[in-house]
Amino acid sequence: MNVVEIEHLTVKYPDVKALDDVSFTVKEGDFLGIIGPNGAGKSTLFATMLGLNNKYDGIIKFFGQDIRKSKDYLKEIGYVPQKPIFEKNFPATVNDIVRMSLRKESNEKKIDEILQQLWIHELSNRRIGELSGGQLQRVFIAKALVNNPKILILDEPVTGIDQQNIDLFFSILRELNSKQKITIIWSSHDLDAVNQLANHVACLNRTLFFHGESDDFFDNDELVKQYSEASMQEHMHHH
């Protein structure tokens, strides 16, 4: 069953097309890695899918429903932003942040369970401004999971996090996808990570130049080379 269908999605900014005629589908239980260099339109794609940008052409459907018609699909989505922005001294503990997302008070028990699952149980009374990048990221995943979402959307979630925390994070994602059958849509510019985790790959650089099984992508040397070059140029450009 398709949980996400995107048809001919185009997003225009005044000077440039951020997304140009992008179409793809995501099936229930997929682990889709969306790869592309910085500025490829990944964040624009997510913002539009999450209903934060209404100025687009084309159709986006979640669970068969056009998102222009109803925002109910948001209840089934957990979203982990690229870099959670907040005031350093915001007076909120881990517990406050996770609880804030909770739709039904009856799911109270769920909070403990998730904090334990993500190894942040002992941090529950710490202020979020005191946490490391890796801990903070797990707090935001906990926050995204607290309403039992069917789909988890993560935007470049390993930027600025150390290797040990990245490994822990990957094993958590694998478990969520394989055991809890949560569909995962994950944007990244790290090809190795996508190769390790995702079973589907979409390559985005304003337009979609590949979408399919991840083996088909990684077996195709030409595509991988093309992606790596684009990514490398971007990298050089930024340094």
Binding site: L50, G51, L52, K71, L74, K75, I77, Y79, P81, P84, I85, F86, F90, A92, I97, M100, S101
Partner: peptide, 10 residues
């Protein structure tokens, strides 16, 4: 805390 995330949470 964060307007954008609050919007995404409906």
């Amino acid at each position: 805390f964060n307007e954008e995330q609050a919007k995404v949470s409906g």
